[in-house]
């Protein structure tokens, strides 16, 4: 199975001749099948960390290990989804979600056959042949995630996937994501700045500090699953929320 280990990864950029730290040396161990969130103020290097894990940028130091294998600077080992849906506007939804399979060399016909039931089961039935601009933001994010799932990697990185959605759609999407996670048993690493969302979804939350980003605290979310709207009223939920709020407020104060 798949365990993700981030060992001492950091990223420094040069800005006006001065080295600037975007991400301080970070260690993170994500166990198989867990839903792990990273929360922190904006500009805390969360996205930098994700780009390093996905192999899109080169870390200044440290390694990324997947099941003990070094995958630093190698792309294509993990599924990655950003806040923007990044659907290709000239392709139908169906042809958008199969693009990862196409790249891997699966024939279009086979790929479509595999994707169709998936779209149907996860709320995109009837939209298969529509173009992205005919869909709402929530629907497009669904398509984006199904594309990532069809790519079929055990670890999935989600960078604020619901950040641009309104509150109601967001709640719907969170439940939808939990369903999918339960069905596919993926290891998920999730970035958000929404405390409720982090607690509601996760097994484990890492709080990042303001620039330079590094992990400040780790919180176990011991709420029972399956979770539902009732979870939001749970005392334990509120305690966790208070704890996180205080930690993030501290960050905001120290950054000012």
């Amino acid at each position: 199975m798949s365990e993700l280990e981030i060992a001492g990864c950091s990223k420094y950029y040069k800005k006006n001749g001065e080295p600037m730290c975007a991400l301080a040396e970070t260690d993170l161990h994500v166990k198989n099948g867990r839903f792990v969130s990273i929360i922190g103020p904006s500009g805390c290097g969360k996205s930098t960390l994700f780009n390093i894990i996905a192999g899109l940028i080169r870390p200044s130091g440290g390694h990324v290990l997947l099941d003990g294998k070094d995958i630093t600077q190698e792309s294509g080992h993990v599924g990655y989804m950003l806040q923007k849906d990044l659907l290709l506007p000239w392709r139908s939804i169906l042809d958008n979600v199969i693009i990862g399979l196409e790249i891997r060399g699966v024939s279009k016909k086979q790929a479509r056959e595999r994707a169709l039931p998936m779209l149907k089961n996860y709320g995109l039935g009837g939209f298969e042949y529509d173009h992205p601009d005919a869909l709402s933001g929530g629907m497009r994010q669904r398509a984006g995630l199904i594309r990532t799932l069809l790519y079929d990697k055990d670890v999935i990185l989600l960078d604020e996937p619901f950040g641009a959605l309104d509150a109601q759609t967001r709640m719907q999407m969170q439940n939808w994501l939990l369903d999918i996670w339960k069905d596919f048993k993926k290891t998920v690493l999730f970035v958000t700045h929404d405390i409720d969302e982090a607690i509601y979804l996760s097994d484990e939350i890492h709080v990042f500090t303001h620039r330079p980003g590094r992990i400040k605290a780790t919180i176990e979310v011991d709420l029972p699953r399956p979770r539902s709207e009732k979870t939001l009223m749970n005392d334990r939920f509120l305690t966790l929320k208070k704890e996180l709020l205080l930690m993030l407020r501290e960050e905001q104060v120290s950054s000012n």
Binding site: L56, G76, L82, L86, G100, R147
Partner: peptide
């Protein structure tokens, strides 16, 4: 769109894939 390129690369695309798709 640079992000589209990034997305494809994260799906294991080589440069020729990015070019064609």
């Amino acid at each position: 769109d640079r992000d589209l390129e990034k997305m494809l690369v994260s799906l294991g695309a080589k440069r020729r894939h990015v070019f064609m798709k």
